[in-house]
């Protein structure tokens, strides 16, 4: 089939694997020069520090109840107001950051681990393994991620560790696809054939030739996945199936705030705004990192 040249690229772009050439930076332009990236990094660092040093930073004990101070609007004493039990909302949001960030990053790491293992072995070994793994991925992709997450939580029970596993599993299919695609390209290279001709076992080829090339770009792509993980955690906790009270989480605060929405809107608003800022910031960073790795996209950015 003969298509105009520019179109050929676009039609195949949806099915062709990411070529590794496109993932290797060819120009050393720092994404630091973009102001949005700088702001995003600063905000992310601030949120992370707040989460790490929550006991030092939070103005109150997040679980301290004060029934004389229920559903009070923001004042100088309680910058973001208090909730139904008189607990300080700001402190709860700061402590909630620990849960959200930890689950976001750990779930992504978990998904990376399984995704890379299965994706790389499927791509490199091919054959029946690849067929089974990729069909499985296709099927899993037909179920919305949040539903997979909910199903896993229902099966494993709710709690910090199980949430990491549940969210990690629901993110895995995507990462398997992302990990397999470049392997298909790399395994055609001459040095892989050379390594095979030398009689190196698959294990060595995978660990010394494939993984070092596939994983660094994937880690960058994974930053974009962290914000998905955080949103899914918040969603599951919002539905009441995730982190259970009295432990504080952004999703849980949003749920609690929804129940008291007309009388105490500051609960939902504070948690929601912080969640949204975190996700936006991670999104900006992930986008920028991906652009800097993909010269094709970089051209488009420059054109803008």
């Amino acid at each position: 089939m003969l298509l105009p040249k520019r179109f050929r690229k676009r039609v195949t772009a949806r099915i062709s694997p990411i070529s590794i050439d496109e993932c290797i930076p060819t120009r050393s332009e720092s994404i630091w020069q973009r102001p949005d990236v700088r702001i995003a990094v600063i905000v992310l660092v601030v949120i992370t520090l707040l989460a790490i040093f929550a006991p030092l930073v939070a103005p109150y004990d997040p679980d301290l109840q004060n029934f004389r101070n229920r559903n009070k609007p923001p004042t100088l004493d309680h910058l973001c107001g208090t909730d139904y039990y008189g607990r300080d909302v700001l402190s709860r949001v700061i402590y909630g950051a620990r849960v959200s960030l930890a689950i976001g990053f750990l779930a992504t790491a978990f998904a990376m681990l399984i995704g890379v293992t299965l994706g790389v072995s499927a791509g490199f070994l091919g054959g029946r393994l690849e067929l089974v793994v990729m069909r499985f991925v296709d099927v899993m992709m037909a179920i919305p991620m949040i539903i997979t997450g909910l199903l896993m939580v229902a099966a494993l029970g709710s709690g910090f560790q199980t949430l990491i596993v549940a969210i990690g599993i629901s993110m895995t299919p995507r990462l398997i696809r992302l990990a397999r695609a470049p392997v298909l390209v790399i395994k055609q290279r001459e040095y892989i054939q050379a390594a095979r001709a030398l009689g190196l076992p698959n294990r060595i080829i995978i660990f010394s030739h494939i993984i070092p090339q596939v994983v660094p770009p994937l880690i960058v792509i994974a930053t974009l996945q962290v914000c998905h993980a955080i949103v899914i955690e918040a969603s599951i906790s919002f539905l009441g199936l995730g982190i259970q009270p009295p432990m504080s989480s952004w999703g849980g605060l949003l749920k609690e705030g929804l129940r008291n929405l007309p009388s105490a809107p500051w609960i939902s608003l504070t948690a929601g705004v912080v969640l949204t800022i975190t996700v936006i910031v991670l999104n900006i960073l992930g986008d920028a990192l991906r652009d800097s790795l993909d010269p094709r996209l970089r051209g488009r950015i420059r054109a803008q």
Binding site: F238, L254, L261, S268, G272, V279, I280
Partner: peptide, 18 residues
């Protein structure tokens, strides 16, 4: 665009509801 792409829809929903 950057702000809304990442905003979780259920938070938009809470704001609209409020």
């Amino acid at each position: 665009g950057v702000s809304f792409i990442a905003t979780p829809p259920f938070f938009v929903a809470i704001i609209l509801l409020l």
